[in-house]
Computed example of a mutant assay.
Amino acid sequence: MAEFILVAGAWLGSWAWEDVARDLRAAGHGAHPLTLSGLADKQDLPAGQQTHVRDIVDEVERLDLRDVVLVGHSYAGIPVGQAAERIGDRLTRVVFVDANVPVDGESFASLWWQGEPVFEAMLDEGDGYWALNAADFDGQGLDSEQVGRIASGSTPHPGATLTEPAVLERWLGDLPATYVKCLLDGEEPNDDVADLLKSERWRLVEMETGHWPMFSQPRELARILHSCTRA
């Protein structure tokens, strides 16, 4: 059985994984949802992107976990990917759930699809924070109750975590990894992910849902995570 560290994306905390964690535990795994600094119940803590990497590494070490599966959703793929190479032989697999992946020397903002200046302008409008946009839920396979749950639990995302560059010691394709692509959020992985999927150590899994599968299809996501322990 594996020990899952579950890290949600922008605006979210450990609470986002409640349903998935319950199913993983029922299957006999350890499940450890983690809130990153500056978010949810830790929103008063200062945070940069390397703070988030340390949050993840520190949690693995604090709990003295082995056979670890690190799971990063959306933005959290960036710190999770960096943490994965820093926990050594404690790692069994890293799973990116419709996630960004770290690129050495690049930030979330520098890789923003509309360009870095557009993203930085959004941070300026939010006084240094990235605000949740309700329009992002459209077409993502969420019902009104699920949308309400996400919106009511979300907190503004600290901008420094999005503008600081990633630091990688080696090619991410050397790590054992699964990429979960949520098809309602785009049928193809981005170019950085597509390159990594050429590695023999990476595999692709598709879900017929949107960007927040821990809400829209938690049982199916838990099943996929469970299957990753047999990869």
Rank of each mutant, 00 (worst) to 15 (best):
A2E: 01
F4C: 06
I5V: 15
I5Q: 10
L12D: 08
S14C: 07
W15C: 08
W15H: 04
D19Y: 08
A21G: 09
R22G: 04
R25T: 12
A26R: 15
A26F: 05
H29W: 06
A31F: 05
A40S: 14
A40M: 03
Q43F: 08
Q43H: 09
L45E: 15
L45H: 09
P46D: 14
A47Y: 08
G48P: 02
G48A: 05
G48H: 11
Q50W: 00
H52K: 06
V53H: 06
D55P: 05
I56V: 12
V57G: 04
D58I: 09
D58T: 12
V60P: 04
V60Q: 02
R62W: 02
L63G: 07
L65W: 06
Y75V: 13
I78G: 04
A84I: 11
A84V: 10
E85V: 08
G88M: 09
R90N: 08
R90A: 12
V94M: 00
V94K: 00
F96I: 11
D98F: 03
A99K: 04
N100V: 11
G105K: 08
G105D: 11
S110C: 10
S110T: 12
W113R: 15
W113C: 08
E116Y: 06
M122T: 13
D124G: 14
G126V: 14
G126W: 05
G126K: 10
G126Y: 06
G128W: 08
A131D: 10
L132F: 07
L132Y: 05
A135Q: 13
D136P: 00
D138A: 13
G139R: 09
Q140S: 06
G141P: 01
D143H: 10
S144V: 13
S144Q: 15
Q146T: 11
Q146F: 04
V147F: 03
V147L: 09
R149F: 05
I150D: 02
A151R: 14
S152K: 15
S154K: 11
T155W: 09
A160I: 11
T161H: 08
L162H: 06
T163V: 15
A166P: 03
W171R: 12
L172M: 14
L175C: 09
P176D: 11
V180I: 13
K181Y: 00
C182Y: 03
L183E: 12
E187Q: 14
E188H: 11
L197N: 02
S199D: 01
S199I: 09
R201C: 00
R203P: 00
E206N: 11
M207I: 07
T209N: 05
G210C: 02
G210E: 00
H211S: 03
M214Y: 09
S216T: 07
Q217D: 10
Q217E: 12
P218G: 01
R219Y: 04
L221Y: 01
C228M: 04
T229E: 12
T229F: 00
A231D: 15
A231M: 06
A231Q: 07
